[in-house]
Amino acid sequence: MRILVTNDDGIFAEGIYDLAKALQDIGEVIVAAPNSERSATGHAITIHHPLRVDKVRFFDTTIEAYSISGTPADCVKLAVEALLKDRRPDIVISGINNGPNLGTDVIYSGTVSAAVEAAIMDIDSIAISMGSTNITQYTDAANFVCRIAKEIIHNNDIKDTIININYPTCPKEEVKGVKVTTLGVRKYENTFIERKDPRGNSYYWTSGNVVDMEQNQDSDILALQNGYISITPIHFDLTHFKTFEKIKKLNFQK
């Protein structure tokens, strides 16, 4: 199995290191990740300036690794279509993210978007995130991903799907189990803090607090809150099928 590993926290983040090391037990690992943090970049790609690629020493390992001056989606596209064009990966795994990617936040997530890009390219993919930023270790989550990856790669019934995992940050013995979930609803009270530059021009810092909302019983947010590993199958087709036939019946000739 050839495994392409990426993330949005940057190539020298602790989470990608532990993930790549663990995955060596199940296949050939290649890392292609941003040269610095690219959190919340969504599915952005770089088209207005060139992408720079440096082959780097990946911590204390011999893993083949590339540092790329682009977004997570860039990293997957460039790796598959150029760097590994004669060695197409069997699966792309993105993470381990420093913090959760739950509910509607997956739209903003660089971690999830890297996995989405792989699915668009018809490659199996997994996004893995920790359930909070209070992280003491990534090893348990990395080992869990190894088990899931082996299941996914050998299952022809799971295609065109991104497996989005959120792993609790509690001790392993306190994890309640695994739940297959739906995307919950994640909203924020956004605050824009105005500042002035030396010339008197305004600029803004954005921040926000999560709004506590009622969740579906099957949601990823509720599963994680209750101590479960959340596994959500997601897809890049954004068609709203419930409204599809209703829209077709509208009179567009007026």
Rank of each mutant, 00 (worst) to 15 (best):
G177E: 02
I3Q: 01
G103C: 09
M121V: 01
R38W: 07
E151L: 15
I123R: 01
T181C: 12
V175R: 08
L102H: 07
I247S: 02
I26T: 02
E81W: 08
L51M: 03
I153H: 01
H49F: 15
F192S: 12
R57Q: 13
I193L: 14
N101L: 10
G110M: 05
G131S: 07
C75W: 05
C170I: 13
D212G: 05
K176N: 09
E151Q: 11
H154T: 14
D124P: 04
G15F: 11
N7K: 00
T136R: 15
E194G: 07
V5W: 05
G227R: 06
T111K: 05
E151S: 13
L23H: 01
I63S: 01
E245D: 09
I63V: 03
S39M: 12
K196E: 15
I165D: 06
T232W: 08
G70A: 08
Q253L: 13
E151P: 00
H48S: 15
T169D: 12
P50E: 11
S36H: 14
Y138L: 03
K249L: 02
E214W: 01
K248N: 05
E214I: 15
A142N: 07
P168H: 02
D140P: 09
I107E: 10
V76Q: 02
A142L: 07
A142Y: 08
E173Q: 10
K172M: 09
R2H: 13
M1W: 05
V210R: 15
P89W: 06
T206G: 13
K249T: 01
A20Y: 08
V31N: 03
G95M: 02
P100F: 05
Y228C: 04
S129N: 11
T181M: 09
N98L: 11
L222H: 05
L78D: 02
T136A: 15
V116W: 12
R88C: 04
Y138I: 06
L224D: 03
I231V: 14
A223G: 06
K172I: 09
A79N: 06
T161L: 03
K21M: 05
E117N: 01
Y138P: 05
P171Q: 04
I153W: 04
A82T: 12
E14I: 06
A22D: 06
N143M: 14
D197F: 07
K254W: 06
S113A: 15
E214Q: 11
D54G: 00
I128R: 03
G200S: 00
N143E: 13
H154R: 10
D197R: 03
Y66S: 10
D18K: 14
G103L: 10
G42I: 01
N101A: 15
V76F: 03
R186E: 12
E14F: 09
I128F: 03
A32T: 00
D9K: 12
S125I: 07
M130I: 10
K179V: 04
T206I: 08
G27Q: 03
P100T: 06
R199H: 13
Q217D: 15
H49I: 09
H48Q: 13
F12W: 11
A223M: 05
T161P: 00
A119C: 10
K21F: 09
T206F: 12
I91Q: 01
P89Q: 04
H43G: 14
E117F: 14
G177V: 04
I152A: 01
H235V: 12
N101G: 09
I165K: 05
R186C: 09
G70W: 09
I96T: 00
I229W: 08
L250K: 09
T71L: 05
